[in-house]
Design a protein around this nucleic acid. Structure first.
Lengths: 151, 151
DNA sequence: TTTAATTCAGACAAAAACATCCGAAAATAG
DNA sequence: CTATTTTCGGATGTTTTTGTCTGAATTAAA
């Protein structure tokens, strides 16, 4: 039927995060990567991840250079970007708020039955995404601890 | 751009949960409610919530009776249904699993950098939905503590 | 300066989620 | 039994998300 609770990412966010992690890793030695290479290394549709990165580039989350031998890269400052930053760049920050049952009026003053517990759990999740930086993932990849392909 | 992390519900789930809470409340005195009444009380598209409830009825989460003076209702046993039960009926239980970064291979043996923290937060959320029953909401509504309309 | 390889921009296309329509079957009051 | 009101089932329509195509602008090597 529907899509339900998605304590997971939209495709767009998943692709964006994986691509950013990959680019951050490849940028260590200053090299640029093009969308073809990115797509094949993170298992994503090539033209789609291109579009997504163009958007993130406009917002200053990474650098891009057109033309031959061009591509995308992430500098030292940008490697401090958190997963929460990426999510917010794509969808805005309203997704880190909101009622657990979808009631618009729900608030501290008029809480729904699960309001307090839910808020605590949701904030914990936000903290996790906020503290996870590209830099941190870069280390993990170098050690061979993680892969960016889907399987 | 995309949809991002949705620590919130799809429309379908939101409608389903609000409708179930409303029906449970109205069923206290044994009366049935029809889709028109449900839709107007929870602010949802009438024909759409009808379809959703038909599905939940088939799965045994509530009762339905066709014909004049028919409608939907929830008996005492069904009032023990949790929000997690509703979500699972609509989308299956895979949504309560899955990696926080969307990596298919991510597991205890091959964890992504946020695996452990994320799992803890996700499980806390599941617990909240699992422990929130229709019965519990029924009490809150009677006391006038919550409303089911969107605003 | 030419050429090849790339990002960029905007239109287009496909798939999934959300929502509606219509006619049939069922139930009940009168 | 009849009339009325409801759910049920399947097709259809709309909107959002996801994914693709095409051509122009950009860059640097040769």
């Amino acid at each position: 039927m529907g899509t339900g609770i998605r304590i997971m990412l939209s495709k767009t966010c998943e692709y964006a995060i994986r691509a950013m992690i990959y680019i951050a890793q490849q940028s260590k030695n200053g090299s640029r990567v093009n969308v073809k290479e990115i797509a094949s290394n993170i298992d994503s549709p090539e033209l789609f991840i291109g579009k997504i990165l163009q958007g993130l580039s406009k917002k200053g989350l990474l650098q891009s250079l057109p033309g031959r031998y061009g591509g995308f890269y992430i500098n030292e400052a940008e490697a401090k970007t958190s997963l929460a930053d990426i999510v917010i760049a794509i969808d805005g920050d309203k997704i880190f708020k909101g009622c657990g049952v979808g009631l618009g009026y729900c608030s501290e003053k008029k809480p729904c039955p699960i309001h307090a517990d839910y808020k605590r759990a949701r904030n914990a999740l936000y903290k996790i995404y906020k503290e996870a930086t590209l830099w941190q993932f870069r280390e993990s990849i170098s050690k061979g601890e993680i892969r960016l392909k889907r399987e």
